Simulated assay, not measured.
Amino acid sequence: MDEYQGKWALVTGASAGLGAEFARQLAARGCHVIVTARRQERLEALAAELQDQGVQTVIIPADLASPEAPGAIMAALRQKQISPDILVNSAGFGLTGEYTDRSWAEQGDFLQLMVTACAALAHHCLPGMRERGWGRVINVSSVAGLVPPSAGHTLYGASKAFLVSFTQSLAAETARDGIGCCVVCPGFTYTEFHDVNGTREALNRAMPDWMMLHADDVAAGTLKAADRGHTVHVPGWQYKTIVALARIMPLWLAEKIARAQQGRYRKT
Rank of each mutant, 00 (worst) to 15 (best):
R24V: 10
L223R: 01
G198F: 10
R259K: 06
A105E: 13
L126D: 00
T231W: 03
T12P: 08
R130N: 06
G13P: 07
A122T: 03
S15M: 08
L253C: 14
K267S: 15
A75Q: 10
I86F: 01
I242A: 15
L146S: 06
N204P: 08
G92T: 11
A225S: 05
Y99K: 09
V137E: 00
G97T: 12
T100Q: 12
G152Y: 03
V218S: 03
Q112H: 04
F188E: 06
E68Y: 11
G145W: 02
D195Y: 07
A219R: 02
Q56F: 11
V33W: 06
K240R: 15
A16I: 12
C185V: 04
Y156W: 01
H124R: 09
S83N: 02
W252N: 15
P148W: 01
L87V: 12
D177E: 12
R205T: 11
D216A: 14
L163P: 01
E173M: 05
G221F: 04
D109W: 00
Q168A: 08
K240W: 08
F22L: 06
A16Y: 11
A220N: 14
P250Q: 01
A117L: 00
V243I: 10
Y99W: 07
D63A: 04
F110N: 00
K7N: 10
P61C: 07
K267Q: 13
G229C: 04
P186M: 09
M114E: 05
R130M: 08
R259M: 13
I60H: 00
D209Y: 02
E131Y: 14
P84S: 07
S165A: 15
G13S: 09
S90V: 09
T154W: 10
D177A: 13
A172K: 15
I257P: 01
S150N: 14
D52T: 11
A47I: 01
E41G: 04
T12K: 09
L251I: 11
E192V: 15
E44C: 14
T231L: 01
L77F: 07
D63E: 06
M207H: 07
S142D: 03
T57I: 06
P186W: 13
G92Q: 05
Q56A: 14
G152M: 09
G187P: 10
R259N: 15
T167F: 00
T154D: 04
Y4N: 02
D2W: 10
N197K: 13
V140H: 03
T100R: 14
R205G: 12
G71L: 10
A226R: 02
A171Y: 00
L10F: 08
R102T: 07
M1L: 04
R228A: 10
F188L: 13
G92L: 06
F22W: 03
V55P: 01
T36A: 04
F93S: 11
T154E: 12
G180S: 14
H230F: 10
R102P: 00
T241R: 14
A16H: 08
G92W: 09
Q238Y: 07
S142A: 13
E68M: 12
K256Y: 07
Y99T: 10
L251M: 12
E173F: 03
A254Q: 05
R130V: 12
W237N: 09
Q40C: 02
V55T: 06
E49G: 03
C181Y: 06
N197T: 13
H214F: 03
D195T: 12
P67G: 03
V58S: 14
L64H: 05
V196I: 15
E3V: 02
